[in-house]
Design a protein around this nucleic acid. Structure first.
Lengths: 129, 129
DNA sequence: TTCCTTGCAAATCGTTTGCATAATG
DNA sequence: CATTATGCAAACGATTTGCAAGGAA
């Protein structure tokens, strides 16, 4: 499983590093195509998966059936707008005690938790009122 | 949006009520087929979606790309085994304060959260040791 | 030269949908 | 009878994969 350098992969990483909105593979694809017009969706998927496996980026699943990717691999929570679907970072401390609390009454080993919050983002609150 | 009674739907609900392991549509399908050999996957999906929309069952997404269904609609947390993938109920209190904590530093309205825990279930711990 | 990576297209997986027919009220 | 629900198969969207050709070490 040796790695070889690839300009496409660099470009994908470079693009992700500029975004804080957790783009999907499709969005990465259309953007990276500006530098690599011939890059294929398959290559984008392959590299996103590879980078995620290497731990260089994070894969995000917020229940809408599409994988999102995050250049920020430090553990943090996300908010998903039920109206427009956009995903944003939340500024709140990690709740490691959650994992411990869950382990109390469980015969097995709990190693972590996945949490995301949902509701209406500041832009979408207007539409409702 | 009027409802009409359907024996297939009854059967799907009845099957779900017997299970605590959060079956997928496919599993519901193969089981309900014992009572309705001609039932189609489409009908199973349609009814699962309908029942979930009615709030009579709950749809569960634990990040493995497959939807699971739960006859128990009361809010509770789940555990997902990273090894075998099975999903189990956790006996722990709801953490509504999480939602409030998240709202502190967020300009928008947080209405709830989705959380599941992962690790190794009691059966799979053995394999690792 | 070795073998990793790419582009392309076809394949896969879970789920949804259109349509003619059957079942329900 | 008016409508909803079904079975079937085709369509779907996101992602993966096989393969021959291209690029890195």
């Amino acid at each position: 499983m040796n790695l070889k350098h690839s300009r496409q992969r660099d470009s994908i990483k470079a693009f992700l590093s500029t975004r804080k909105d957790h783009p999907t593979a499709e969005i990465v694809y259309t953007n990276v195509r500006q530098s690599f017009p011939n890059i294929s969706l398959g290559t984008v998927y392959r590299n996103l998966t590879l980078l995620a496996d290497l731990g260089e980026i994070a894969r995000l699943r917020v229940g809408d059936g599409v994988d999102r990717f995050d250049y920020d691999t430090s553990p943090h929570y996300h908010f998903v707008c039920s109206e427009c679907g956009r995903v944003m970072d939340l500024e709140m401390p990690l709740m490691e005690h959650l994992t411990e609390a869950a382990g109390k009454s469980f015969e097995g080993k709990i190693e972590g938790h996945v949490t995301y919050f949902y509701g209406h983002c500041n832009k979408c609150i207007q539409k409702i009122i």
